[in-house]
């Protein structure tokens, strides 16, 4: 969208004004997150600039404090378990939904992705009341089940998206050559839809790692996850230790994003190659 040579003065002014506008929007988007990172290396206790010196003391604090270490451990347990469950359940269901034709398919899909649309506080309240009856509040199992349900819709959506272009004659070819259904799935279908599965799994893990509302309702003190620890930290006593944790989470987000971008581009490249070949 370069400025043409014959542009009028008005067009020229608008061209630059528009660029400045977009730059301001972009700064609004990225700047606040970036301000956290230097502050987390502050050697003083203040939460504002200028820095009083550079040190790693708050990072040391995260590692040394039992509370934060426990929160990280809890989040990893819950995140990994719910990610595995959500991915397994979501992938198989996506394959089943994609292959079969039946009435009410749209409704079923809408129901299965409803945890994504229903306000979190409603899911949290419903699970809290239900878990109170069956004794699953304040347990790992309860939080894992809750996060499985919240993360599963993302797996369903990403896997369904990769299945859209899937060529089922490959499955028939495998079967006609004598392979049983399970080997066909693991050796033919799975490698082809793997990018979708991996993105879905990452979505599920990120959802669990970022989820506060449900945990706030159903987790006891012994099962505090990282976001819950941060939430009460921000609310009660905002210390620089939280900034160190936040910086780690920003780095994690960056890694997540790069991996997903890589997967997406690989997928696009493969699709383009397949289109040329086909």
């Amino acid at each position: 969208m370069a400025l043409p040579a014959h542009a009028t003065t008005g067009e020229r002014i608008w061209y630059y004004v528009f660029r400045v506008l977009v730059a301001v929007v972009f700064i609004y988007l990225v700047f606040p997150i970036l301000t956290i990172i230097p502050l987390s290396f502050n050697s003083g206790e203040f939460l504002h600039y200028p820095l009083q010196g550079v040190s790693l003391r708050w990072y040391h604090d995260v590692v040394a404090s039992g509370q934060w270490a426990a929160a990280v451990k809890n989040s990893l347990i819950v995140g990994v378990c719910s990610m595995i469950l959500a991915t397994a359940l979501g992938t198989t269901a996506a394959v089943g939904i994609n292959r079969a034709k039946f009435p009410g398919k749209q409704l079923l899909v809408a129901l299965l992705i409803s945890p994504m649309m229903i306000p979190l506080v409603i899911s949290a309240l419903a699970l809290y009341l239900f878990f109170a009856k069956i004794g699953l509040n304040d347990t790992y199992l309860g939080i894992i089940l809750a996060h499985t349900i919240l993360g599963m819709p993302f797996v369903l959506i990403t896997v369904s998206a990769t299945l859209q272009g899937f060529d089922y004659s490959l499955v028939n070819a495998g079967a006609s050559l004598g392979a049983a259904p399970l080997p066909v799935f693991f050796r033919i279908v799975m490698p082809l839809i793997l990018p979708g599965i991996v993105s879905g799994a990452m979505f599920a893990f990120a959802t669990s790692l970022d989820e506060v509302v449900v945990v706030l309702f159903i987790a006891g003190p012994a099962h505090r996850t990282l976001p819950l620890q941060m939430f009460s930290g921000i609310r009660e006593h905002l210390s620089p230790t939280i900034l160190a944790v936040a910086t780690m989470l920003i780095v994690f987000a960056g890694l997540l994003m790069l991996t997903l971008e890589f997967l997406r581009r690989r997928n696009e490249r493969l699709n383009a190659a397949a289109n040329v070949a086909g």
Binding site: T35, L209, M230, I250, A253
Partner: peptide, 20 residues
């Protein structure tokens, strides 16, 4: 930039606004 913001934890983003 957009995706980095999208993937960053909601709590971190909220916290950053409190600081800013």
């Amino acid at each position: 930039g957009l995706l980095l913001v999208f993937w960053t934890s909601l709590l971190v983003r909220t916290l950053s606004w409190i600081l800013v």
